[in-house]
């Protein structure tokens, strides 16, 4: 499966190590991705790395990339006009329900795959009951898409932001994102929750939601394993019975909980 070429239309610096790339297809485009799916992004001569989809519009695709390794550094380093390869989209999507209450809980770069969910909730606000967006980051400077929060709030979303550390110039909340969850009114029967962030944070957040009465299957998490091929053929992303690239990344907490409870699975 060969990558399709995409040209960087726009490059936005999000944080010190994270950029958002808006890309246009050079040849044919990939199939329109669903919220929660990912693609394999290829930097010429360097390699491929799985990156979640943060949006798509006007035939283009949006990826927010954190430079954590050699390949993601090369992808994040792409400048306007540069060409990258893309294969996909792969994996399961968030499965946003047609209505009800939504809780979107994101930690760090975990907000990137959730942005399409938030945008969908904004675009179709009337369909949903309460829509809460809880965002956690290391410091205020590490927050993704901060310029969009006002738009989300204006659309009637309950956006709550918290950081792990801040100086006095920060007027927002300081504390883990799960403590913000504690203060949130939740109607467990009506709620679907979408959780993405570091695995430890997802474990705590999902447990907290289940403790609040939300059914485990209504708590969806996005798993991360070593995705290489994207189509369940290379075996790297196994998590027990799951091939995360094919059966995930989005799975219900009912399936994820027993697997994440096993060390080194």
């Amino acid at each position: 499966m060969t990558p399709l070429r995409y040209r960087v239309r726009r490059r936005l610096t999000e944080t010190a190590d994270t950029v958002t790339l808006v890309l246009d297809p050079v040849d044919e485009p990939i199939v329109a991705p669903l919220p929660g799916q990912f693609t394999m992004m290829y930097a010429f001569g360097v390699g491929e790395v799985p990156i979640s989809v943060s949006g798509h519009a006007d035939g283009g695709i949006v990826h927010t990339v954190r430079a954590v390794g050699a390949v993601s550094r090369a992808v994040a380093g792409a400048r306007t006009g540069d060409v990258l390869g893309i294969r996909g989209p792969f994996g399961t999507d968030w499965g946003v329900p047609p209505g009800g209450d939504l809780v979107v809980l994101a930690g760090g770069i975990g907000l990137a795959p959730l942005r399409p969910v938030i945008r969908q909730a904004v675009a179709r606000r009337a369909r949903f009951g309460t829509v809460a967006v809880l965002i956690g980051a290391r410091t205020p400077a590490d927050l993704l898409y901060p310029h969009e929060y006002a738009t989300w709030r204006a659309a009637g979303l309950d956006v709550r932001v918290t950081v792990d550390r801040a100086d006095m110039s920060w007027t927002g909340h300081v504390g883990v994102v799960t403590t913000v969850l504690g203060a949130l009114p939740v109607d467990p029967a009506a709620t679907t929750a979408f959780v993405c962030g570091p695995e430890v944070m997802m474990r705590f957040a999902a447990r907290a939601l289940v403790d609040r009465g939300v059914p485990p299957a209504a708590v969806r998490v996005s798993l991360e394993r070593n995705m290489r091929c994207g189509v369940g053929l290379c075996g790297h992303c196994q998590l027990g019975p799951l091939l995360v690239c094919r059966d995930g990344p989005v799975v219900g907490w009912d399936r994820a909980a027993p697997l994440l409870a096993v060390k080194e699975l």
């Binding site: 954590v68 390794g69 993601s72 991360e224 394993r225 070593n226 790297h236 196994q238 027990g240 019975p241 060390k263 080194e264 699975l265």
Partner: peptide
């Protein structure tokens, strides 16, 4: 094989043998 940014998921031989056998006969 199980590398994630930061390090491999299965660091012990125990977990790697378990993965192989459990996959082969189970999952």
């Amino acid at each position: 094989f199980s590398y994630l940014h930061g390090g491999p998921v299965r660091t012990s031989t125990r977990s790697r043998y378990r993965q192989w056998l459990t996959h082969k006969l189970g999952t």
